[in-house]
Design a binder for these strands. Structure first.
Lengths: 173, 173
DNA sequence: TTTTATTTTCAATAATTATTGAAAGTTTTA
DNA sequence: TAAAACTTTCAATAATTATTGAAAATAAAA
């Protein structure tokens, strides 16, 4: 059961999947996880674990782990196909939704812990010149992080149209 | 030649350096690179390769590689200390500048190549239903990526005050 | 020039992270 | 209930990435 139908198109899809996988690593994302998502994204129908295994040439365990992680990130869904016993998976095709979901998750997992730690470190019982300077750096780090966090919050809440047209225009001036 | 003077403060600095290092890995940044930068950021004076080696307990080669990379990213500078033959290094203390520099570099290294590849893939010689759908996904990915790229451009050009107050307020409504 | 101080490189190695595959677990069907 | 279909887990292993350290290169001083 392959998702492929035309040659040139197939090549382009494969290239997209490969490219996405290698780009992912520079963002601290597992290569296979990115590839599985890319595959589901360009697939016209939900795929089973076996479909993914065959297409990406990876083991059952690997597929399972990465599909779970993607579901955990909220960017892949289980699908029930009538007449089929096994599970199928699909990725939402709304890219703005995808962007918002990823942003939301990374914010929660990576930015919020940073803010927490920076705030903790601020509480030093020391008022020397050097300590003041250190606290200043921490405070500035907090400030930037909080601002970015706030911007991401707004982006998550924004609907597609607003973010696309309105937002970019406002930004310009 | 150690940069340390007070106990509690010293602990906090160490904790900050360690924490930064481990957080960095989830952003696809080398742990040591992040630690070296953190160390230079909280240091009151420029440090030599040996200072860094001692404090972080890492090899000369490792220090050299990572300091070069940081200089390459534009967030660490060489300093010439009078009466000293060896090189010293320092990190700029302006966190907004740091944020802008990092954003600029990641944009160049990671976002712009994505846009290029997505555009390349668009050029498929196929008009089937499936091809249309694939092109739609690619187009949407381009759209989001370009928008994010644009926002980052504005952020880079924006001065601290504008980004902090004006921007966040605009975003709110 | 030669010596000495310092930086850079890079093959070898260590540490980390990802992947396999088979066994154990679960759910469905008969 | 047992057998079949499928999913999950995880110890072993592979692949990747980071680090060392000593030799080569470079730069400054004598």
């Amino acid at each position: 059961m392959l998702y492929i139908c035309c040659m040139k198109l197939d090549e382009a899809k494969i290239k997209y999947i490969q490219t996405w996988g290698s780009l992912a690593t520079s963002w601290g994302i597992n290569k296979t996880m990115a590839q599985v998502h890319a595959l589901l994204l360009v697939s016209t129908k939900p795929l089973s674990a076996e479909d993914i295994m065959e297409t990406l040439q990876i083991s059952r365990g690997n597929v399972n782990m990465n599909v779970r992680a993607l579901i955990d990130w909220g960017i892949v869904n289980k699908e029930f196909v009538i007449g089929e016993r096994k599970e199928f998976f699909s990725a939402g095709k709304d890219i703005w939704e995808l962007f918002k979901q990823i942003t939301k998750e990374r914010k929660k997992r990576e930015i919020e812990p940073v803010i927490k730690i920076l705030d903790e470190l601020q509480l030093i019982d020391d008022n020397s010149e050097e300590a003041q300077q250190f606290k200043k750096v921490l405070g500035d780090l907090s400030s930037v992080t909080n601002t970015v966090n706030g911007i991401l919050d707004k982006a998550i809440k924004a609907d597609e149209h607003w973010l696309l047209s309105n937002f970019t225009k406002v930004i310009k001036k």
